[in-house]
């Protein structure tokens, strides 16, 4: 049986990072344990009285069951979370979903592409890659504005360990909008490598366009992995909200290989919302 009732957790610490974004450290209370999560998996955070939301780990739970997550203040649950102080009692369930695959030595160099808060699910994968030291790693990080960038400490820490390309969509003195999609050819030329594996997370239209662009360059579709965001109420594959064709993102995702995702995204009626390519 899969319970919808959370374990008791505590808000331990937090610090601000970027526009309306904050890092929170949580811990499980009462000697409770989770199975060790994989990079790219997620957990459900309950803010009692406000509701429950899926969040990715920016730092996986340690042996004392402490972990970090990056949260952008966006809706009612995150707004309630931002009003809390250390010591607040919360609920947490997890870990859920399929994480990023562990790259093999034949899948280097590795390209990471993130848009906005989409960098969060890639942090623990980036740390794993740097620890494995398989080969060159590059990160294309797109953000709406310099102020919208997040995970500054992590990006500073990675400065000399991976090739970091930051793409600011709107910055002072810059006239044309620029997204990771626009920057891709220049970045790959400058980096001097073609990726053996690509992991990305950001606006869905941006990821779809990037995948197609990479494939046009001859990158094998099976080497491209994406992490999706969806509304979720259960994380057990029963509430129905995160459906994607005949799969549920909470169980079959949130990370998908491009060949599988491309099939799942095929449907006769597409959304009328203008594609959001920006971060």
């Amino acid at each position: 049986m899969t319970s919808l009732t959370p374990m008791v957790a505590e808000l331990v610490d937090y610090y601000d990072d970027g526009e309306a974004a904050r890092h929170f450290q949580f811990r499980l209370l009462d000697q409770q344990q989770w199975p060790p999560p994989e990079p790219g998996q997620f957990f459900m955070l309950s803010v009692p009285g406000a509701g429950e939301i899926p969040l990715t780990f920016t730092q996986l739970p340690d042996q004392n069951q402490h972990w970090w997550a990056l949260v952008r203040r966006m809706g009612s649950v995150t707004s309630a979370l931002f009003r809390l102080e250390p010591g607040a009692i919360l609920g947490a369930r997890g870990p859920f979903g399929r994480g990023w695959p562990r790259p093999g030595s034949d899948q280097t160099p590795v390209l990471l592409i993130a848009g906005g808060c989409g960098l969060a699910p890639l942090v623990s994968q980036a740390e794993r890659l740097l620890e494995m030291n398989l080969g060159p790693v590059a990160l294309i990080y797109g953000a709406r504005s310099p102020e919208a960038r997040v995970l500054g400490r992590e990006r500073d820490r990675w400065q000399h360990k991976l090739a970091l390309f930051e793409v600011i969509e709107q910055s002072p003195g810059q006239t044309a909008r620029r997204t990771p999609l626009d920057a891709l050819p220049d970045v790959l030329a400058h980096w001097g490598h073609e990726p053996g594996a690509t992991f990305m997370c950001g606006p869905e239209a941006m990821m779809t366009a990037l995948s197609q662009r990479l494939i046009e360059r001859g990158i094998p579709p099976s080497s491209i992995w994406l992490s999706l965001e969806r509304r979720m109420h259960c994380a057990t594959g029963t509430c129905g909200h995160c459906y994607l064709s005949h799969r549920y993102v909470c169980q079959s995702g949130p990370t998908f290989g491009w060949p599988e995702l491309e099939l799942l995204m095929q449907q006769p009626v597409t959304t009328q919302t203008p594609p959001l390519l920006s971060c």
Partner: peptide
């Protein structure tokens, strides 16, 4: 049904 807090709505 699928609308996220960001207002992104896949359906």
């Amino acid at each position: 049904f699928q609308r996220e807090a960001s207002q992104h709505n896949p359906s």
